[in-house]
Simulated assay, not measured.
Amino acid sequence: MRVFVAGGAGAIGRRLVPQLVARGHEVTATSTGEGKLALLRELGAEPVVMDGLDAASVRRAVAAARPDAIVHQMTAIGKPDMRHPERSFATTNRLRIEGTDHLLAAAEAEGVPHVVAQSFAISFGPHTGLLTEDDPIDPGPVETVRKMAAGIIHVEEAVVRAGGAALRYGGFYGPGSSDDVFEMVRKRKFPLIGDGSGQNNWIHLDDAAAATVLAVERRAQGVFNVVDDEPAPIGEWLPYLAAAIGAKRPLRLPVWLARLLAGEFAVTLVSNGRGFSNARTKQQLGWELRHPSWREGFKHELAADSPSHTHS
Results as ranks from 00 to 15, higher is better:
residue 212 T to A: 04
residue 224 F to K: 04
residue 218 R to K: 13
residue 199 Q to F: 13
residue 254 P to C: 06
residue 221 Q to R: 09
residue 248 K to M: 10
residue 219 R to M: 08
residue 211 A to S: 05
residue 224 F to Q: 04
residue 233 P to F: 11
residue 190 F to C: 08
residue 258 A to M: 08
residue 236 E to T: 15
residue 247 A to H: 10
residue 220 A to W: 00
residue 256 W to P: 10
residue 181 V to G: 01
residue 256 W to F: 06
residue 242 A to H: 08
residue 198 G to F: 12
residue 190 F to L: 15
residue 254 P to A: 12
residue 248 K to S: 11
residue 259 R to A: 12
residue 203 I to Q: 07
residue 251 L to S: 02
residue 234 I to D: 11
residue 231 P to I: 07
residue 189 K to N: 08
residue 229 D to R: 01
residue 221 Q to Y: 00
residue 228 D to V: 14
residue 231 P to Q: 04
residue 196 G to H: 03
residue 184 M to P: 00
residue 186 R to T: 10
residue 196 G to M: 07
residue 198 G to L: 12
residue 241 L to W: 12
residue 200 N to G: 13
residue 220 A to V: 07
residue 191 P to F: 09
residue 185 V to P: 13
residue 262 A to W: 13
residue 229 D to K: 01
residue 199 Q to S: 12
residue 207 D to N: 04
residue 191 P to W: 08
residue 196 G to T: 10
residue 212 T to Y: 01
residue 214 L to D: 00
residue 192 L to Y: 02
residue 248 K to E: 12
residue 238 L to Q: 15
residue 257 L to V: 11
residue 231 P to Y: 02
residue 258 A to Y: 09
residue 212 T to P: 04
residue 197 S to V: 01
residue 209 A to H: 07
residue 225 N to H: 11
residue 257 L to S: 01
residue 201 N to W: 11
residue 226 V to F: 03
residue 189 K to A: 10
residue 188 R to Y: 06
residue 255 V to K: 15
residue 238 L to E: 14
residue 196 G to Y: 02
residue 181 V to H: 04
residue 262 A to I: 15
residue 210 A to E: 09
residue 186 R to I: 06
residue 206 D to N: 11
residue 183 E to D: 13
residue 184 M to H: 07
residue 199 Q to P: 03
residue 201 N to I: 10
residue 204 H to K: 05
residue 241 L to H: 13
residue 232 A to N: 05
residue 242 A to R: 08
residue 213 V to P: 02
residue 193 I to P: 00
residue 245 I to Q: 05
residue 258 A to W: 08
residue 251 L to C: 00
residue 260 L to W: 12
residue 255 V to A: 11
